[in-house]
């Protein structure tokens, strides 16, 4: 008999206050409490974290890489959104 699947969770850790939570990996657990404990036991053994989020993997909605053109390329041509697009004489100093 095949082994039944246990739900997969994504783990996010804040390494220092002031930083955002960052994806560090995944684990399997049957519920959120066990997932949080497992995240602590697996991903913070070397003092990597001050705060943990666990999220069921199937709760994540992701963009489709096949739609990369439509989704992300239009932003590439908007160079006027970046400060370097504008000319300010050196004499004016930092702006």
């Amino acid at each position: 008999m095949p082994t039944p699947n246990t739900p997969l969770w994504e783990v996010f850790i804040r390494s220092r206050n002031g930083l955002a939570h960052k994806h560090v990996g995944s684990l399997h657990a049957t519920d959120a409490t066990l997932a949080l404990q497992a995240a602590r036991d697996i991903y913070t053994r070397r003092g990597e974290g001050l705060s943990i989020w666990v999220v069921p993997s199937n709760a994540i909605t992701a963009s489709d890489p096949a739609e990369k053109g439509m989704m992300f390329e239009p932003a590439e041509s908007k160079i006027y959104r970046h400060p370097t697009f504008y000319e300010v004489p050196d004499e004016v100093g930092h702006m």
Partner: peptide, 8 residues
Amino acid sequence: MYTQALNT
């Protein structure tokens, strides 16, 4: 690593 959501 967003497995189950993306690949199945």
